[in-house]
Amino acid sequence: MRHLDDYLDKVSNLPPAPRVLTELLTLLGRDDVDSEKIVSIIALDPGLTASVLQLANSALLAAARPAEELSEAVARLGFNQVFQLVAALVGGSGMAPPQPGYGIDSGELWRHSVTVAVAAQLVAEEVGDAPAIVYTAALLHDIGKIVLSETLVQSYAALVADTEQQQLPLIEAERRVLGTDHAEIGGRLLTRWKMPAGVVAAVTYHHAPQEAGTHARLAAHVYVGNMLAHMMGYGCGHVPFAIHGRSEAMRILGLGEESLPKFMIATFEKLGFVEALFGAVSKSKAAKR
């Protein structure tokens, strides 16, 4: 069995540590959000600045007069949406390419991740939990798949056979074949990135939130967001439904059975925003080439 860090050290297309995301997360966690500071962090990165301006001027939010300054764009979008965009850009870079080891096509992992993040944030707002950290953890929940995909290209057939014939969840099949799984590797990567402990735990336990100890609530948010996205067809890969049902996640958040359809409708209403974000991310990628 390979050591966990071997996977991280040998992978060739790992995204860089999103320092700007950690900084923004810290700023947003304070009671009095300092908008000048937020603008100055974003302004350091020309690509991010262009994307924030583009989103502010997108068809979804189009105002009579286009925003020309970054500060104006930030004011129009609000901190919440700016953070969502920045997180989608920096945390999501590296999620856009196909992940052949999982049968994931180009753009699919990114769309899945952002939909999970948007859905999880809706639930967090509804039950009164801090939305930014929920959004971040949800956005990054499958980041481990980027690390494992290269290895899985070789052993993918065995993995799918395990899930389908033995009705094994994908994560357990990963453990059998690789000795680790995408949640554990993702958590390890985020530790290296110096992400908050809650984000690390929520990603590590996003398939078993009841085991996340003091961070069980955050992990449950990611789990429920993941379910909402999957049910709406925003899953990805070969056997997207090879996941254990964890009713514990619903109990941890105090959600009843009938709340899921309601959150599916609320998430549906936000899909336009997901696509606008996707447009901003794609354009920023094209500009960098």
């Binding site: 379910m227 439904f241 090879a242 254990h244 049902g245 009713s247 599916m264």
Partner: peptide, 14 residues
């Protein structure tokens, strides 16, 4: 109507 592995009835929308 895809369906995750769930016996609880919470996630049986499919």
């Amino acid at each position: 109507g895809g369906q995750i592995m769930d016996n609880s009835g919470f996630f049986n929308i499919g």
